[in-house]
Structure formats: C-alpha cells, structure tokens
Write a protein that binds this DNA or RNA. Structure first.
Lengths: 74, 74
DNA sequence: GGTGAATGTCAACTCCACTTGACACTGCAT
DNA sequence: ATGCAGTGTCAAGTGGAGTTGACATTCACC
C-alpha cells in the first residue's frame, strides 16, 4: 500500500464487528434503536449526517470511510 | 496554530462563499434543489449522510468539517 | 438435543428531509 | 430611480428516517 493511497472503505457492520460490539451496544452508545443500526448496516435507508458522525466517532473512523459515495449503493 | 490542532470547523455557507459559488450553482452541482441548500445552510434540518458527502466533495472539504458535532445544533 | 445471545424481519406510527412554485427582500451597479 | 443577481420565506406535498414492539431465525456453546 503506497503512502498516498485513498483511505480504505469499511462498512459500518465490518467496523462494528472488528471492535467486538453488538448491534445493541452500538445502538445504545450513539443513542438510537437497534433497529436503526440494522437498517443502516443493511443500507435500508441513509442515516442523517449527525447520526453518521456519531457512528464514525464511536467506531473510530470517518464518515467518508463508513459511507462510501462512489460505486456503492444509495 | 500547532501542527496537531483539530481541523477547523467551517460551515457550508462559509465554504460555499469562499469558493465563489451561489446557492443555485451548488444545488445544481450536487443534484438538489436550491431550497435544500438554504435549509441546510440555515440548519433547518439535517441532511442525509450522502447529501453531506456530496457537499463535502464539491466544497473540497470533509463531512466532519462542514457538520460539526459538538456544541452545534441538532 | 437445549439454551441464551445476537441478529433478522415485519408492521404501524410520527416526523423529518426534500421537492416544487412563487413571491419578498437585499445588495449592487447604472 | 430601475434592473438584475442572489438570497430568504412560505406552503403544500411525498416519501424516507427512525421509533416501538414482537416474533423468527441464526449462531455458539454445553
């Protein structure tokens, strides 16, 4: 990997699991329902920017990494 | 400013103006209505994460900079 | 096999996110 | 003064974002 490569895209689910969190724990940590986490992980709907930011903070990531624009759904 | 200072928060309106764009131009560039840009700039409502990402791309910024979490409304 | 934890699915509900359209207001140049 | 570009405001409409609650399914472990 070159020093200038773009940041790797990592989904919410993958990132959550890599931190050993359950959906319920993540939901509670950022103040939403578990169903919301499921829906976001499944791309059922796009979260608000502030919810995305809270996810990024808790998952030690960035919005750009968690919610890729190009080539992805939505 | 120290080399390790956090990125400065810049609002959507300020960033747009610094690039010399009108609301209408920005709206067209990212594929939304001008009214949407107004509402976002005035924090009438929180945009979806993908809209925020498109804004960040067009404004050569990041979501974290344009939509600060701490101390802000929402 | 059973059990418990974790995840998935469904549905009804409320309110927000964004649209369109049109008029009002502001700032600047002439 | 007028005209134009840019911005603000209002309103009605649609569909999505997120909630709760409950049951189904999957997975890991004993």
């Amino acid at each position: 990997m070159t020093p200038e490569s773009p940041p790797m895209t990592v989904g919410v689910r993958e990132r959550r699991k890599s931190l050993g969190l359950t959906q319920a724990q993540l939901a509670e940590a950022i103040g939403v329902s578990r169903q919301t986490i499921i829906s976001i992980e499944r791309s059922d709907y796009a979260p608000s920017v502030y919810l995305a930011l809270r996810l990024a903070v808790r998952l030690n990531s960035t919005v750009e990494q968690l919610f890729p624009l190009e080539g992805e759904s939505r």
